[in-house]
């Protein structure tokens, strides 16, 4: 096998890992703090991409400034949308079993898909390619687009920011404590419901950031959130549910393995991720970085 190809394919895997990490870190963060598995998390990714299209293509007609603006404006918007969902709908299911949360958020997927279709139309839409102004580097017969390098950098920076936030800031520490035991935190005088909104805001912001990051590479279409959410499950299960470092590890594993599978064993593409996921669950059910499983009921 050509070592250059292996290298470049690993790099491709890392690009995909970064996007997966942005989305799945949000998913795992919400799960870790609130024990809510938000199936509609992928819909926020989709909304992020579509809002990005609106800013980049429709408002700023593909200029570099449009990209900058989209990266600054879109994630907070999806964050607010997520927070509104928590306040308006998901909050009311905390007393129920998780099947109700899964179902509620599954309903939201259907609603978001059709709403996006109503607003932006059923046709797939393409972002203008940011590499048109960013360019790329030659690497033998291959070319490494600058945007891909920026995406990998973004993924790792977000990880560092999250790590600093949870270990250095007060709010971050309280959120981590709430993840451990929300009742004790509440007894200490912290408004847990606020923590819940914050974490939904942050998680959804990350998903929207994933959407606006991935959008310029891909094509936006209604229903684009379904694939990423299934892969994100795999990521957080492999890494350990609720663990941000776990999401990083899981994203790296899923992204790189999938890329290498396509490159060298294409028959395995669809199956490989789920095989890894099932194996991890069977061998170490709590995932690579997860806390021990506990029964709540």
């Amino acid at each position: 096998m050509d070592p250059g190809l292996i290298l470049v394919q690993t790099f491709n895997g890392l690009v995909y890992s970064s996007i997966l990490f942005l989305v799945s870190s949000g998913l795992t963060l919400i799960y870790g703090i609130m024990r809510v598995l938000n199936l509609a998390h992928g819909s926020l990714y989709m909304v992020g991409a579509y809002l990005g299209i609106t800013v980049v293509l429709y408002l700023m007609s593909g200029t570099p400034l449009g990209y900058l603006l989209a990266f600054l404006a879109v994630p907070p918007l999806t964050g607010l949308l997520g927070a509104a969902l928590e306040r308006g709908l998901i909050r009311r299911t905390y007393e129920m079993g998780e099947e109700y949360q899964l179902l509620l958020t599954f309903g939201l997927i259907l609603i978001f898909d059709d709403l996006v279709k109503m607003i932006w139309g059923p046709a797939y839409i393409n972002f203008p390619d940011p590499n048109a102004f960013l360019g790329g580097f030659r690497f033998g017969e291959y070319k490494i687009p600058v945007y891909h390098i920026l995406l990998i950098a973004l993924g790792f920076s977000v990880f560092l920011v999250l790590w600093a936030f949870f270990s250095k800031t007060f709010t971050g520490k309280v959120m981590r404590a709430a993840a451990q035991d929300s009742e004790v935190v509440e007894a200490m005088g912290v408004d847990v419901s606020k923590i819940f909104v914050y974490s939904f805001f942050l998680g959804s912001l990350l998903s929207g950031l994933g959407g606006i990051s991935a959008g310029p590479l891909y094509t936006a279409s209604p229903g684009m959130g379904t694939d990423i959410i299934v892969y994100s499950f795999a990521v957080i299960v492999i890494g350990g549910m609720g663990s941000v470092p776990g999401a990083l590890a899981g994203s790296l594993i899923v992204g790189v393995f999938r890329s290498l599978a396509i490159a060298f064993y294409p028959q395995m593409e669809i199956v490989v991720v789920f095989v890894i996921m099932a194996l991890v669950l069977l061998v170490k059910p709590t995932g690579l970085f997860g806390a021990p499983e506990f029964e709540r009921r």
Partner: peptide, 11 residues
């Protein structure tokens, strides 16, 4: 969308 709304309402 109709099914989604019904789902949310049920929950």
């Amino acid at each position: 969308l109709v099914i989604g709304v019904v789902l949310v309402a049920i929950v």
